[in-house]
Every structure is written in C-alpha cells, then in structure tokens.
C-alpha cells in the first residue's frame, strides 16, 4: 500500500466506498434483497393478480412439494440427465483435449470449430435441433441411411429428453474441453520425462501421470455439469413450447418453477420450489469446494 495514500485514512475509506458503491448498491437491491424476500415468501401464499395479497401459510408449500408428482418427475428427469450427460460430456471433453494437446498441426483451427456451439445461443441451438430432430428431418435420414432405427424425437416421451441430452452434450463438451486443455498444459513436462526414463509406456503415463494430475479439474467439470443440469430451462422451454411435454418428459425444475409462477400464478409455491433448488445446488457447490480444497492440499 503506497505510504502517501495510507496516511490519509479517511480519504482511503472514502475512495474505498466510492469504488464499491455501484457494486454494493446493485448487489443489495437485486441480490441480497431478493434472496431475503425469497426466504420469506416461500412460506406464504401470494396472490398477485388483481388485489395483491400475502398470507403466511407456514410449511404448507413444503408439504405440497412432497406430494407434488411433477416435482418428482422433474427431479427424476434431472437425475437421468446427470447420469447420462455428465459422464459422456466429461469423457468426450477429455478425449478431445488429449488429442488437441498432441503436436498435431492445425489444432488451433479445430479448436475454433469445436467451440462454435458453445458461443451460440441456446435458443438458436434448440431451434436448429428441433429442425434436425423432425421425424422427417436430417437426423432420421442419416439414421435410416445407416439402417439404424429412426425415432419421433420431438413427440415420443421416451425419446424427447434424449434429444435434449444429445444437444447439450454436443454444445457443452467443447467448453469443458478447453478447461481440460489448460490443465493439461500445466502438467510439468519433467514428470513425463522422468516416467520415460523409468520406461513407462504411453498408457502408463496416461494412467499414472495425466489422469491423477487432472483429477481436480475432472471434479470441477463434473460438478459444473451437474449444476448446469439442475439449471436447465431454455432448451426444455423451447422444445416443449413451455409445457415440459410430451408427457412431462422434458420437465425440469426451473421450467416447473416458471410454470407455477407465471401460468398458475402461484408465486409462493414457485418460490418454495426455488428454495429447494437453491439448497440442492448449494449443497453440490459446497461439496465441490471442500473436495477441491482437499485435493489441492495433497
């Protein structure tokens, strides 16, 4: 801290708050205040249309949640989604990163191409994929060309969620690929040199050096993937026209919250659901942070 500035303490305090002012103002009005009001309103019945009325209902909203079949369907969809998407996208990301980390020519170009889906809006990607998933569309044509079974990707409840999964793997794997790529470049070359001297082959190097070195990143990627899954909204909303259909197969928690809030106008219950979602995500995040720290200590 420069001494000249330090001497003027009150001046420092003033400039400190001057620098912080915009952030403090916005964060308190649009982050802290909403969090506090969510905590309160989640235990109320809120009527907004016509006369605005708030009525404290205790834990009624929480009890309703347990009895609400659609909540369980949304959670089931999310679980299915996590179980399929997260491993595939993680492995795909790692594989692509490993290839791009070799001394192959033109890898920059490939990296730019691979990354395109990540920068494209989910609204656009969803529309493009709906067009491709059309029963008479490109994907089914390709499948039937290879004599594979074709599906009603948009209309069949057993398939619709798989369609969204496929699209999401496609669009998020490159993002994680870049994270892996950065981590790969940080592994000291000396480790590999030492291993080579010890006579380790490529596979051994991969399993004994690369993979352990990447484990904190892998953990990060998995947790980010899980959180992203819990927050899924745009794709399901556009795919199903807001309903989460066909037959609730694309229903996600955020979509359910949106529907309760803006179609059913049940703001209190929607907030209770939001609270539940927040608890789930925070638990996952905190788990990640604790694990992450431990990993770094080792």
């Amino acid at each position: 801290m420069p001494r000249i500035w330090q001497r003027q303490r009150s001046q420092e305090a003033l400039s400190g708050y001057f620098f912080m002012l915009p952030a403090l103002f916005i964060l308190s009005v649009f982050l802290v205040l909403p969090i506090l009001s969510a905590l309160i309103l989640a235990f109320c019945k809120v009527q907004l249309l016509g006369e605005v009325r708030y009525q404290f209902t205790g834990i009624k909203n929480l009890l309703r949640m347990i009895a609400d079949e659609r909540v369980w369907i949304a959670l089931k969809n999310t679980a299915e989604y996590v179980a399929i998407v997260v491993p595939i996208q993680t492995i795909l990301a790692l594989g692509l990163a490993l290839i791009l980390n070799t001394n192959i020519r033109g890898k920059k170009g490939f990296r730019i191409i691979f990354f395109m889906p990540t920068v494209t809006s989910s609204a656009v990607l969803t529309l493009i994929f709906m067009w491709i998933y059309n029963s008479d569309g490109l994907l089914n044509h390709i499948l039937s060309f290879f004599n594979l079974p074709t599906y009603n990707w948009l209309g069949d409840p057993a398939i619709a969620l798989k369609g969204i999964m496929l699209m999401n793997i496609w669009s998020t794997a490159p993002f994680f690929m870049v994270i892996y790529l950065a981590a790969l470049q940080e592994i000291p070359a000396s480790l590999y040199e030492a291993a080579q001297i010890d006579g380790a082959n490529r596979w051994e190097q991969f399993f004994y050096i690369t993979l352990p070195s990447l484990s904190p990143v892998t953990f990060f990627v998995i947790v980010m993937g899980i959180i992203g899954t819990f927050q899924l909204f745009d794709q399901s909303y556009i795919f199903s026209g807001g309903s989460g259909g066909p037959n609730n197969s694309t229903l996600t928690l955020v979509l359910l919250i949106y529907n309760y809030a803006f179609s059913n106008l049940d703001m209190g219950y929607a907030l209770a659901l939001t609270l539940m979602l927040a608890v789930v995500i925070m638990t996952v995040t905190l788990l990640q942070r604790t694990f992450f720290r431990e990993e770094q200590v080792h």
């Binding site: 009005v29 982050l31 969510a38 309103l41 927050q231 919250i257 939001t274 979602l277 925070m282």
Partner: peptide, 13 residues
C-alpha cells in the same frame, strides 16, 4: 447462491 432463486423476487422488485 444460484441465480434462479432471485428470479421471482427480482420480478416483484
């Protein structure tokens, strides 16, 4: 805190 939690209160504010 995930962003979703602030969505509805933000709307009310």
């Amino acid at each position: 805190v995930p962003g979703q939690i602030t969505l509805l209160p933000k709307f009310l504010i």
